[in-house]
Simulated scan of single mutants.
Amino acid sequence: MSKDKIVLKSNYNVPNLERGLLVIELLATQKNGLTLAEITEILSLTKTTAFRVVSTLIFKNYLQKNETTKKISLSRKMLTLGISSMNEQSIVETSIDVMRALRDELKESVMLGVLLGPKGAILEQVSSSYPVKLFVEPGTQFSIHSSVGGKSIMAYLPKEESSDILKKITLTKYTKNTIVSKKEFRSQLNDIKQLGYAIDNGEDIQGIHCIGAPIFNEYGYPVAALWITAPHGRLPHSEFNSKGTIVANYALEISAKLGYIAQ
């Protein structure tokens, strides 16, 4: 019986599919990507086979190629699929205790979110200790340009990837403070990278302030964001820096649990 199963299994092998999966698995370990020649050598493929497999994966948007460096890497589509598969099982489970600790220290609602295509999505929240609080259902989408979740992740994405996302989104004006200039938005992303945290100065909902920071995986890729949200009276401008540092430290704690080692 087992021998028949082995024979049956081997009859259904699809060589190019197997090679495609090998390419994906290899690139998942290479943060900066590899050239076609490097992929060919490492996987011991013929040049023709490697070219066909890689070209197909690029055409289907699972891989991307930097035309300047010729490096091939996993695309946003592939990374999004990976994030989608690990959200409920991994990121939330890893983050929930840290989220509760952050809520206990600052007493404000704590959110956890990711980017999924041109929008963001909230995975989990821990409600504020105060009677007046903002409650958002898990799964609720948020705009990238007006939210700390979106800005925290965008600031740390590879430049080509963040530029590609920015080209595709519309910077809708939600309040008088919403940034609608892509040039100004890029400048803010640079500031976020310098500070280590992002701010929503009532840009999504008037009167609601948020402070957030990115969560990195073991490869240093920003897979999620952690943030607090509160009425502006409880989270004034004067406290942005002190509380931003606190949120960033808690986000780094989650990153460490995911295997990230700070430089």
Rank of each mutant, 00 (worst) to 15 (best):
I122T: 10
I199W: 12
S152A: 12
S152V: 01
A198K: 09
I205F: 15
F142N: 04
S128D: 06
A101G: 07
L123M: 15
S146W: 02
N190R: 08
V110E: 14
K133W: 15
A121H: 12
S146H: 00
S143G: 08
L157I: 05
S147D: 03
I144V: 09
M111H: 14
E93K: 15
V92R: 07
I169Q: 05
V114F: 13
G113R: 08
R186F: 09
D191Q: 10
G139T: 01
I165Y: 06
L123D: 09
L157W: 00
I199Y: 11
T172R: 13
V110L: 14
D200P: 10
V114M: 09
G139E: 10
Q141Y: 14
K176C: 09
F135E: 15
M154V: 01
I199K: 12
I83W: 02
L112R: 07
H145P: 01
V148W: 04
S152I: 01
L123H: 11
E88P: 00
K77Q: 02
Q125C: 14
N177Q: 06
S95N: 05
G82W: 05
S147Q: 02
I205V: 15
L106Y: 06
M99P: 01
L166P: 04
L115W: 12
T80L: 04
R186G: 05
I72D: 03
K167Q: 15
L189F: 07
R100P: 00
S128E: 14
T175C: 09
K167H: 13
D191P: 00
A198H: 08
S163T: 07
D204R: 08
T80H: 06
N177A: 14
E160S: 12
S109R: 03
V126R: 13
G120M: 01
I144R: 01
E124I: 02
S85F: 12
V126S: 13
D97V: 13
M99L: 07
E203Q: 08
N190I: 07
Y197M: 09
Y197F: 13
T175A: 04
V148L: 06
S85K: 08
R76M: 06
I179R: 12
P138I: 04
E108I: 07
K151W: 05
R100V: 03
L79T: 00
S85W: 11
Q194Y: 15
E93C: 02
K168P: 01
P118S: 13
V114T: 08
F135D: 08
S187L: 10
I91Q: 00
L116W: 08
E108Y: 14
M78L: 06
A101M: 10
T178F: 04
I169N: 07
D104H: 10
M99Y: 07
I96S: 05
N201D: 13
K133E: 13
P158I: 00
G117Y: 14
L171P: 01
T140I: 06
S143I: 02
S187I: 07
R103F: 04
K119Q: 09
I83N: 01
L74M: 01
R76N: 04
G150M: 04
K133P: 01
Q141N: 09
P131A: 10
P138E: 08
Q194M: 15
I91E: 05
D104F: 13
N87R: 09
I199S: 11
F185K: 08
P138D: 13
L112C: 04
I199R: 13
L79D: 00
E88A: 11
V132Y: 14
S128L: 10
T80M: 11
T175F: 01
K173Q: 10
S73M: 10
S128V: 11
L116V: 11
G149Y: 03
